[in-house]
Amino acid sequence: MIADIDAKLLLGTDQEERLAPLLTEVRRDPATLTRHVARAARVVGRGPGPYGHRVEDVARARLLLAACETLGPQAAADVVAEQYGSGDADERRAVLIALPALDAGPEGIGDAAVPVVLDALRTNDTRLVAAAMGPYAAEHLPDDAWRHGVLKCLFTGVPLAAVAHLEARRDAELDRMVRALADERRAAGRDVPDDATRLLAR
C-alpha cells in the first residue's frame, strides 16, 4: 500500500545499509517487527538525521511501513495499533511519524489510526504531542480534537510550527480558544506564549 517513500523518511548511505537487512527480515517475517523496532536505534543509529527526522525515528517508521506494505487498510491499522501499544515513547513517536506515509494512496489507512493520535495527545510528553500534530492529524482528526491538540501545544511549549497545515485548518473557534488562553495568562500576570500572540496577529 506504500507507493513511494517520502524524502523525509530517507537516511544516509551507511544508515540505509544497516537498515536494509532489517527491512528484508520484517518483509520475510512480520512477527519480527516488534523486536527490530525496539533494537533499531542500537543497530541503525541515533540522533539528528539527514532530512529532518531523527535517525531512529526514520528507521522505526520504515520498518513499520515495510510490515504494512502488502496489507489492506484495516490489517495495516491493526499493525499500527499493536506497534504503538507495545512501544516505548520513542517507538510510539516513530509510529506517529509513519502515519502520513501509511495514509497515502487509495489503499491508505484513512481514519483508522485516529485512536493512536488521540492517545498521544492525552500524554504530557512533548515529543509525542509534537509528532501527533503532523499531517495525518491535520487530515483526519475531528475539529474539536484537533483544536485541543493545537491548544495543548501552546500549553506544553511545543512550537506551533510542529502543527501541520495550521493556517488551512485554523477556524474562528480555535482563535477564540487561543484568545481565552492569552486572557487567562494575562489575568494571572503570566507570559502569553509567543506562538499564541503570533497566531492571533496573523
Binding site: 539528528p48 529532518g52 531523527r54 511545543v158 510550527a161
Partner: peptide
C-alpha cells in the same frame, strides 16, 4: 558514551525541540 538524553536536539517537522524541554502541567 553514545550521547542523546538531555543533550541533543530532537527535530520535529523542521523545528528544533530540546528533549527535556520543560512542560507546563497545567
Amino acid at each position: 558514551l553514545d550521547a542523546t538524553v538531555g543533550a541533543s536536539a530532537a527535530d520535529f517537522e523542521g523545528n528544533t525541540l530540546q528533549r527535556g524541554e520543560p512542560v507546563g502541567l497545567a
